[in-house]
Design a protein around this nucleic acid. Sequence first.
DNA 1: AGGTCGTTTCTATAATTCTAGAAATGTATG
DNA 2: CATACATTTCTAGAATTATAGAAACGACCT
Lengths: 113, 113
Amino acid sequence: MDHKEIAAMCKALGDPTRARIVQFLLDCCCEVEVGEGGEVRSTEGPTAGQVCCHVTGSETVTSTISFHLKELRNAGLVSVEKRGKYMECKINRDAVAKLADFFNDAKTRSGCC
Amino acid sequence: MDHKEIAAMCKALGDPTRARIVQFLLDCCCEVEVGEGGEVRSTEGPTAGQVCCHVTGSETVTSTISFHLKELRNAGLVSVEKRGKYMECKINRDAVAKLADFFNDAKTRSGCC
DNA sequence: AGGTCGTTTCTATAATTCTAGAAATGTATG
DNA sequence: CATACATTTCTAGAATTATAGAAACGACCT
């Protein structure tokens, strides 16, 4: 099935640096802006540089973060989109949903022991 | 929260061999026996040898499976209990529940983007 | 066009993890 | 008690993965 996919996502999440990246993206995700008309809209995701800054404590090892972002993107967990000069990073909602579904199923299945 | 714990479990699940072990244990978990009185009871978990047999295709690399079982146990995902000459392997229900909860939360959090 | 900035790719090295044989441990059985 | 069996620990080697500097790329600005 998509056990391969689930395993790949788990593997991606298994690295501490990548786990922090995902955590940060989830946090950013919940910040919303209120527009002039009062409408609520979500902010854009952080740039790769902001992720780097936050995760490595303002060190400038961008290549390492770039490597991990690629890994997360390959696993389908994160989408990285070019926005002018910057790269916008976002959690992939569908991927998280898939993980949630998988473990919900596993939970009910493990319930019969 | 137990962010470390979640990451450790994900890491454990990230290895293909361990993913197959967990898959197998989940499958075994759902097999039930009907007792003489008609009552339903779950069967015991498989032994380490049975896990090895199933996962490696009847090869006899028990040391490798033992290594992975230890890894899964350290991550809290599996419990391995001595039963006479054998070791009985079981999925840890609480661990699976924790993962489910974590990703359910992440799912709702990612929902606001 | 030239320069700066954000990011990726390339490269080499360091670190971690996986694998499996061999020996060791513990447990039942003859 | 000796033997067979199930599993673990020890060991070394293979394979994978992470790290970070350097160079390269592309986009913006003047």
